[in-house]
Design a protein around this nucleic acid. Structure first.
Lengths: 231, 231
DNA sequence: CTGTTTTGACTGACTGGCCAGTTAGTTCAG
DNA sequence: CTGAACTAACTGGCCAGTCAGTCAAAACAG
């Protein structure tokens, strides 16, 4: 029967890899096809042009993201919250992810110009926000946070801060881990007095407050051609 | 004598306007020239290609930014701090600025790929950070903030949050004013008990906590051509 | 079960348009 | 008349998208 599904999934994965190595701006259909044993024409056979491909890719990404953020470890609400922030910010397990976050920034920056991008990005935003708000509500119910804490406000704050972390990482090479841990400190500062939170420390792993700023391992694999990167 | 300087400045201003209407990604040299009474070839006469033009443009922007952030109103340190945040975030005086912030996001997202971008962006970052840190230090000296406040930490927090605000505004169309006022609330929460801060309220103007999210007046003036934006 | 047709997946070669950058002049101040 | 500041027209390369097939497997006919 049809290989359609497998091939399209393969193209989604290829797009991910191609984004990591080329970035969004100078990614060509050929680059994506090259990550595959298929031809560029096959890409056009399966997707209705580059725009369509990218919209589908965003949806594919969102699917994975939605699963990722609801997958909590055992522990107190605050421990889950901290773990969530750690999971979302800088899953530097393999380093390619860092490249990807950079490319994802480019995509965010394109949202105002391209049909359909913003809608999906809003879903990323809304999902994460409601997950954070839920956990904060749980934390209040569990007595870890004071009653006066506003879950929506905390969620907004966390979202904005997370976006800022990604942006500064890409723009000036600031250290994601440092910024992430600052955010987590904010979150822990909300704890009611005397709350021990051993679970947090356990889930947290050692506090890695390394220095920031340098890392310079830029992203591009493309050695600059004469003029300017293209698309 | 030579019109060099005037012409080059005119090209810088033209680049600004062209960015507002076309965004970074599909900005062509012709677009910039069209904002001028000069030809595209004149652009190439004055600048060593598109890359060089953009590096100079960033430096030109930075100049204006550096002036802007040190220009404080009279008042207490915290009032100055709040005014600074208001000035930096969303100077929506004319609406074109909103477009520009969007385009500037695109530029930030290109920093990892293009020589020289990151260096200038770091200067934006460093200048704003040290300005904030200085004001926080003043606020501590003036007794508005407690001694235990860490100026560098606050400055980091503010920077990351500001970047996040810009990013969310571009990516999901979140309301800049709402996020900005949340940040200002954070800043005011640091005040020592009983501190009145009338100056802040005065400088601040009315608290505009409008609702967020929608505004949809996307950025692009370019009506989507069939395929995909180029460059 | 065999030969024929259809169809879905895919390819290599091509095309058309776009755009950065160039070049061979032109204009004009000093 | 020299050189700086331009311009109109052109060039070359790149890339999304197209097209005329190929090929294997399914569907079908007898």
């Amino acid at each position: 029967m049809s290989q359609e599904h497998d091939t399209e999934t393969a193209f989604m994965e290829a797009t991910y890899r191609a984004l990591c190595t080329h970035g969004y701006a100078d990614l060509t259909m050929q680059d994506i096809a090259d990550e595959t044993d298929k031809s560029k024409a096959a890409l056009h056979y399966h997707f209705d042009g580059k725009d369509d491909l990218f919209r589908e890719f965003l949806a594919y990404l969102h699917e994975g993201f939605a699963e990722k953020i609801v997958d909590h470890p055992d522990g107190s609400p605050v421990a889950k919250l901290v773990a969530l922030v750690r999971r979302v910010l800088d899953p530097v397990d393999d380093g390619a992810d860092q490249q990807f976050n950079t490319a994802f920034m480019e995509i965010k920056a394109q949202a105002p110009y391209r049909d359909g991008y913003r809608e999906v990005l809003r879903r990323f935003d809304a999902d994460l926000r409601s997950e954070v708000a839920d956990l904060v509500t749980e934390a209040i119910d569990a007595g870890q946070y004071g009653e006066e804490t506003d879950p929506e406000e905390v969620a907004e704050h966390v979202l904005t801060y997370i976006h800022g972390t990604w942006t500064r990482a890409a723009a000036v090479g600031a250290d994601v881990v440092t910024m992430r841990e600052h955010l987590i400190d904010d979150l822990l500062d909300l704890l009611v007095e005397g709350e021990p939170v051993p679970a947090v420390a356990a889930t947290a792993g050692p506090r890695t407050l390394d220095d920031e700023d340098d890392e310079d391992g830029a992203a591009c694999g493309a050695d600059a051609d004469d003029g300017v990167r293209r698309e």
